[in-house]
Design a protein around this nucleic acid. Sequence first.
DNA 1: ATAGGGCTACAG
DNA 2: CTGTAGCCCTAT
Length: 415
Amino acid sequence: MEKWVAEFFLRRQQNPRVYAPSLLSALKPVDSDDCVKFKITAVLRDISNSLNRGTVDEGMLDLLELLEKLLLQEHSVIMESLRSAYCWTAAECSLRFMWPMTASDGFFGDALERIWKKRIGMLKERESDLVSRELLKWESDLNKAFEEPEIYKKIRETNIRYNAISRLTQLLKEQWALLGCSSLESEARKRLLKCKDPPSASRQRGCYHFGRAGDTIDNTNEELETGREARNGSYRENANDVEEVGWVENPDRVDKVTDQEHEHEPSVSKGDVTVARELKDVLLEIQRLTDLSTMQEKEPGNAMDQSANVTPQHDGENRTEAEDSEGTSSSRRVRPHLPTPEPLNVSPLKKVRLERPRPRRLMKFWTPEEVEALREGVKEYGKSWKDIKNSNPVVLADRTEVDLKDKWRNLFGRQ
DNA sequence: ATAGGGCTACAG
DNA sequence: CTGTAGCCCTAT
């Protein structure tokens, strides 16, 4: 149970203060297969924390490698997003040591040795899936940079950090989505579904992906209330959906569920209803407490109300609806009331027109090397200019994606 | 993100 | 002057 609660917290986006490694070691004795998903959750939370702090360092590489191992234990495929994130994180870690103008100062050489020779060398040894073509390309580019000041300078000016961060963000998004909702939530849902046949619309809402625990709890709540005037039917089908989504830990409970399924009997046991209700209450309590604590952390007063009260000078007719809706549905979920935007007295279109156009970039003719890189890129990726640039960011450092497109057009006519 | 029209600096 | 490579803007 404590693991469930821990997992529930780890998946909440609003609770970034958890330190996953210590949590993992505290729960070490429990080391069944079920534990893998929990560990993945913890690692994802750590990656997320690190990203929130803006740190993309070698610790991040450790986490990504750990994530790969866990995914392998779980027999999942290693997705492109993980490889790409690893690759750009490794590049960013090397870039951190390129702050001197030249490669000669030792930091960069050390970084190459530590990250690419040792760390990635070990990945190669165990034939890890993290070793991608993209990664090998970076390895050769960085090694070249160590020898040639020109390439060093170009890489130094590339915005690798942005790429790394966006890839890590994408990775997190995918992985959270894969995990689905937490055990606590799916267990609660399963029990509720056993009580009632939910309205058909709930099929789409069967699984709530990453994070928004608030919504999940609210909806769980609604189903308890609305589903009370019962309806019989395809409960089995829905129960199966949930089975796939959640990961189940307690063997006793699993048995109970499957037993009942075999009986094809949507009967409601009284015990289950009370357990479901208790579970709901506990979830709501946790929700309330965490919301309170996060609110207090942010601002002592209620920021929403204040901003709603600050009305623009030319007030006049509008804005009575805010109070109306407040009065009629006091029992519903409280939503923030944002003030209606103040009309601009200057059209934004005009403003753009008046702004000084930024100066044209200096014209620079394409070098044969760049053209060759473009040709290779098109051969490999087709007309995905973005991928082409990413595949050879060093040679194509001075060219935007649009430039690539334009050059290709110049090479083969405008049609 | 990409395609396509249009502009501008430059070579001849 | 004209043609074109490179660059910019905007619609999709």
